[in-house]
Write a protein that binds this DNA or RNA. Structure first.
Lengths: 342, 342
DNA sequence: ACCACCTAGCTAAACGTTTCGCTGAAAAAT
DNA sequence: ATTTTTCAGCGAAACGTTTAGCTAGGTGGT
């Protein structure tokens, strides 16, 4: 492949002149510019970003590390991130830690080797470590997404999980439900913990509390939620309403209802934090809080590009998005003695 | 950030010795090796992939260019590709051409600049151009995925679209349906064209042909399929069965049915090529051909890594996956005079 | 005519790594 | 004891680009 030296030879100019034309970084006379452009075209010259990176210390790469790429929530985030990164003139390097700390460590080491200009990270745990450029501690520009991490001075983009859960729980209580169960996310994550806290706070504010047997861990996984929902729904005294802590688990719960021959809201009311795109149009429409994933991702990129350009000394910023309740068709007023599952 | 020279200084050896230790590429005495490893640790040294790339001519990057990242089919592909690429020791650079030729051209130019070691490309059109390393025409190792391109000597991974459509259409005809409609993909794509061809061939083999008004373009988009389905289903003599050419459009059709108060298979039978993960568990379960996206993606990566290692001179390989019909609950036997939509 | 200033284009070093070829010391062969 | 062979470790060039500093020629002022 042709290099800048080949182009310089062909155009009878220096490499500095070719570089000035390619980058439009200095005045070059029209005559020389025309010769350089002709040589570039004739030789089909493409600059090497590796060489440019080596000289300038910028890779034009943004790393995105999601926690569970199989989750449609993160698929939407990837979609938005790719578009935003392209719009800013970068390329997206995608990693999936699959909720494993050892994967995350290896990925962050790889990101240092690639000398990515910035990172968007969905941390696997509250102790995830932001990579540093060197032992003196200058961090790679990083935005934490959706979840926060202890003791780290980085920009963060989160949603108000407590408020999301509170809105859903209040809605169910407004409909008269008092026996409300929940299927939770992992409680070591700020998202999982915040959503359970929000539900508990909302119920306690009205002098209520879920039965211990009605609070089950679903690990943010569809299949786990499916199993747990079957258990909940076949208890002697099942809940009359369910708060489900993410969209993927909501899908599992809907599958469990279908398999048990139960309908919502006839037999049970269900509502969730977030949903799955695509099923939003199916009946019954799920009552849920909506996460503005696209807006959050775009804002994360804006913060990150700003951090890359302005350096890492400025105070970190924490942007908290507010979820909004979307009332669907999956919740109804409390009624005595819902039919037992068969 | 520490460089190999810093490590060499600290360990009192040469950069060649440090490189030999880091890469395990030559014998180094235990004493020197220990000194180098200690220095690496003390200085928190991370090799620069940019410098390595410049010297070796290998970036350790694989580019994945999908055609529509909003489509869950491609989201699954991205999930599988990230895992496979990581397993082979590469990093994944993700691009979304959004079915636009001008995006694809810009993306392929960027991939050359990044000197990606290989590309998996879902081409936007049958005339998409595989990038060359130089004007002498040595191509970047590339595997075309799902769709093929005219006159290009590259490895390809496809599904037998004709067979997929034929299986679904035969199933519907076996149930007694003769008035079968279809919502097609873009016909300039080998996938869209192949599926319509397969349906036509299957019907013609039994002396049948869809009514012209029953063949509508859905562009592989959910919202387009939704509109088109409403039109089809409110015709004076609507089809009694529908073949839908991809999973996303099947979702749109199901939404249209729900909005029109129609049920399948009671009011109409519907079946599709491919589906959307996540809705497979909801009722009624969609009858469909299943695309082994994960297997196809893994095989694409195997072909690509092999091509990277062995060079681009070997004959191209074309692996065609066979879809399999999965009978769900969305099709029933033909019955006279299905109820009209209200 | 001479001097001062400006500027387009050039030279060459540097970015961080790899690796070829060299060399001095040790081991083996005679 | 001498000669030959082997090998661990090293020096330095190269990968392709950018850019600081230099210079020759042109322009403007006196």
């Amino acid at each position: 492949m042709a290099t800048i030296r080949d182009v310089a030879n062909r155009a009878q100019v220096s490499t500095a002149t070719v570089s000035a034309v390619v980058n439009d970084s200095a005045y070059v006379s029209p005559e020389l510019r025309a010769r350089v452009l002709a040589a570039i075209s004739e030789l089909d010259y493409t600059p090497s970003l590796a060489a440019r990176n080596l000289k300038r210390g910028r890779s034009q790469l943004i790393a995105l590390v999601v926690a569970d790429l199989a989750n449609p929530f993160f698929a939407r985030m990837v979609w938005a991130a790719e578009a935003a990164v392209a719009a800013w003139g970068y390329s997206l390097v995608l990693f999936n830690s699959d909720e494993k700390p050892e994967n995350e460590r290896r990925i962050l080491a790889r990101i240092r080797m690639l000398s990515c200009d910035g990172i968007i990270l969905v941390p696997v745990d509250v102790t995830s470590a932001i990579p540093q450029r060197d032992t003196e501690g200058e961090p790679v520009p990083t935005v934490l997404f959706g979840r926060t991490v202890e003791g780290q001075k980085t920009d963060t983009i989160t949603i108000d999980n407590v408020s999301a859960a509170r809105q859903v729980t209040n809605y169910l209580m407004d409909l008269g439900h008092t026996r409300i169960g929940t299927i939770t996310g992992p409680l070591h994550l700020t998202t999982g913990r915040g959503r359970l806290d929000g539900m508990m706070e909302a119920m306690r504010a009205r002098g209520l509390e879920p039965a211990a047997s009605h609070v089950r861990p679903g690990e943010f996984r569809e299949d786990t939620a499916y199993s747990v929902a079957r258990e909940l729904l076949t208890l002697p005294e099942p809940p009359t309403a369910l708060y489900i802590a993410n969209g993927v688990m909501a899908l599992g719960v809907m599958r469990a209802l279908a398999d048990l021959g139960l309908k919502c809201p006839d037999d049970i009311s269900i509502a969730s934090t977030d949903t799955i795109p695509g099923i939003g149009g199916l009946r019954p429409r799920l009552t849920r809080t909506e996460h503005p994933v696209i807006d959050m991702t775009n804002e994360a990129l804006r913060l990150l590009i700003d951090r890359i350009n302005r350096g890492t000394n400025a105070d970190p910023r924490n942007v908290v998005f507010q979820p909004s309740l979307v009332v669907g068709e999956s919740c109804g007023p409390y009624r005595d003695s819902p039919p037992l599952a068969r």
